[in-house]
Design a protein around this nucleic acid. Structure first.
Length: 567
DNA sequence: GCCGTTTTCGGCCCGACTGTTTTCAGTCG
């Protein structure tokens, strides 16, 4: 059972408890533990079987028992019991914005609602407004929520970072161009460079906040806007992305930026620790219990300093030990994009790329790179894009020729070689011996068992010709789950045989993930930051590879292509 | 339900907005 499945079961139980009217801290305990479990790079199932799951923060005896029952029987007895009492349709209508557990429970108890269909009937018959505290507006918004639920049964999907970042940057520029805007920045998950975003958070400072809110609400990308107030405004863009704009006075910019950059888990722990030290933190300032005085700060550095921390880079703010490290002065030096000296994974028209060898080389040189590996797909790639061994060897010659004639960038002759179902590679060893750089990747047979996939991966890792493993888990963000793989065993093999792993910077992949890349560092495996560019413009994906590396606490010393070409 | 240099009980982060009421509960981020 995967960590995601265990986490989903605990989240479901949290919702059921909430609908049942349980103490909110009990509910919080389940949602927090679900997040912790989802964040683990290693199998929580195996931890639980070994009796080690209570070592995770927020997981105690009771949760251990429930997790073990889930693993053994496929369900948690407490959840099964609650489901008998509470119709499953209630969980569904709880997802309607504005309908929380308390209201859902009353709709059930007082109107006999069991799911979306009865709720629609009740709302259309005007019976919802008969409930105390609900009126015509609530009834209308419930009907609208039901329509959206019917359109998107699984809820609004998260968007890839590269889908929201350009929009966020446009909106920040639009804020900055207004004369009343003093400062504006991207906050939220986009600033933390998360894999995906639910919406965009922007913050700004202004002496006339309401004027600025009205200005941004009229921007061309905005489809509709809520009420523009002195605190900001909520926008919906034509791309369907929600945007929260928050505005404060200039002297509290640091507090606001810190607050809205998050993550929720980072801020919660930050505030809890502060309370234990007599300080209360909010977006408006830091209040001292003793004096009752509130302080505001213009920069985030000052906010963290006041609370006793070194400055924490946004990419680290996920409650993964960064606060403790910042107290102890043990935060890592993080890699920066300017330190990357070459890209070691790209495709040309020889396989499925859109630009020629020379075009790719020119684009990489333009970026200031010292070297670029050309790694077209191998013989059995399929889609008519495979490269037979003879074509590859001619390409190697072409690259040698290029390097002799070129004063600038050095091209590295490589290939992205398929790992077949049995763990063998699809070029002969003599062909591979002609190459300077071999990436091995899995592109087929994703549905095998974990042990089979792991054995296959380790066979490739141990192949003497292989330098690096490409997009190791095969995940496609928001579209395809990673195939089953024992990443710990793979990393251990890689450390032994001195094989690198890439962080694939394609915003669809970000693979290794931040969590796995951090495990790789701890296992002593070297990382390569790559783009897997299929056209020259995609070399910019390096920003996402760098972002994942930073989220994994990696510094330049952990990454091979921050140095000169070494082979 | 978890947790502990206030440790086995009694706490557990903070504020804005909405819709409904005239002071607030529920929801959300």
């Amino acid at each position: 059972m995967s960590n995601a499945e265990i986490a989903a079961a605990l989240e479901e139980l949290a919702v059921l408890y909430q609908l049942d009217g349980a103490d909110r801290y009990r509910v919080l305990a389940y949602t927090n533990s679900a997040r912790t479990i989802r964040d683990q790079g290693v199998s929580v199932e195996e931890m639980a079987i070994r009796g080690e799951v209570t070592a995770l923060p927020g997981v105690g005896k009771t949760l251990e028992e429930k997790i073990l029952a889930l693993i053994e029987t496929g369900e948690i007895p407490a959840a099964a019991k609650l489901k008998e009492k509470l119709p499953p349709g209630l969980i569904e209508i709880n997802r309607i914005p504005g309908l929380g557990p308390k209201t859902v429970r009353r709709l059930h108890d007082e109107l006999g609602v069991t799911g979306p269909d009865d709720l629609r009937a009740a709302a259309e018959a005007g019976r919802v407004r008969e409930l105390k505290g609900l009126g015509a507006k609530s009834e209308q918004s419930i009907l609208e929520g039901l329509d959206r639920l019917a359109e998107e049964p699984s809820g609004p999907s998260r968007m890839l970072l590269d889908e929201v970042l350009p929009l966020a940057e446009d909106l920040v520029a639009a804020l900055r161009e207004h004369p009343s805007c003093e400062r504006a920045e991207i906050a939220g998950s986009a600033r933390r460079m998360s894999d995906t975003c639910k919406d965009i958070d922007l913050i700004a400072t202004s002496e006339s906040p309401q004027v600025l809110a009205v200005h941004i609400a009229a921007y061309e990308a905005v489809a509709s806007a809520g009420k523009a107030s002195a605190n900001g405004v909520r926008l919906e863009t034509h791309l369907g992305v929600g945007v929260d704009v928050r505005i404060v006075a200039p002297d509290a910019f640091g507090n606001l930026l810190q607050h809205f950059t998050g993550s929720a888990a980072h801020n919660t722990l930050l505030r809890e620790v502060a309370v234990s030290e007599g300080l209360h933190v909010s977006e408006h300032g830091i209040t001292d219990d003793e004096t009752g005085q509130s302080e505001t700060f213009r920069t985030e550095e000052q906010v963290y300093e006041r609370l006793g921390y070194r400055y924490i880079e946004p990419e680290l703010r996920e409650n993964r030990g960064e606060l403790e490290a910042a107290r102890a002065g043990e935060l890592p030096e993080l890699v920066e994009r300017s330190q990357v000296r070459g890209d070691l994974h790209c495709h040309t028209t020889l396989s499925d790329g859109q630009n020629s060898l020379k075009e790719m080389a020119a684009a990489a040189e333009q970026l200031g790179y010292e070297y670029l590996a050309i790694t077209d797909h191998s013989a059995s790639h399929g889609f008519g894009d495979g490269v037979p061994a003879d074509d590859l060897l001619r390409r190697v010659e072409e690259i040698r020729q290029f390097n002799e004639e070129s004063e600038g960038i050095r091209l590295v002759a490589g290939s992205e070689v398929n790992i077949d179902r049995d763990g063998t590679l699809d070029y002969d060893d003599e062909v591979l011996a002609e190459l300077d750089w071999v990436i091995a990747s899995i592109h087929t047979g994703f549905s095998k068992s974990e042990s089979a996939m792991t054995a296959r991966m380790i066979a490739a890792i141990e192949h003497p010709a292989v330098d690096c493993i490409g997009h190791a888990t095969g995940r496609l963000l928001t579209r395809r789950d990673p195939y089953p793989l024992n990443i710990e065993a793979a990393l251990e093999a890689a450390a032994r045989s001195n094989t690198a792993f890439e962080i694939n910077g394609s915003p669809k992949r970000r693979d290794l993930s931040d969590i796995h890349a951090r495990m790789a560092k701890q296992a002593g495996v070297k990382i390569v930051l790559n783009t897997d560019a299929h056209r020259a413009g995609s070399f910019d994906y390096m920003r996402y590879a760098v972002a994942t590396a930073r989220r994994a606490w990696l510094g330049p010393a952990d990454i091979l292509n921050t140095g000169p070409w070494w082979k």
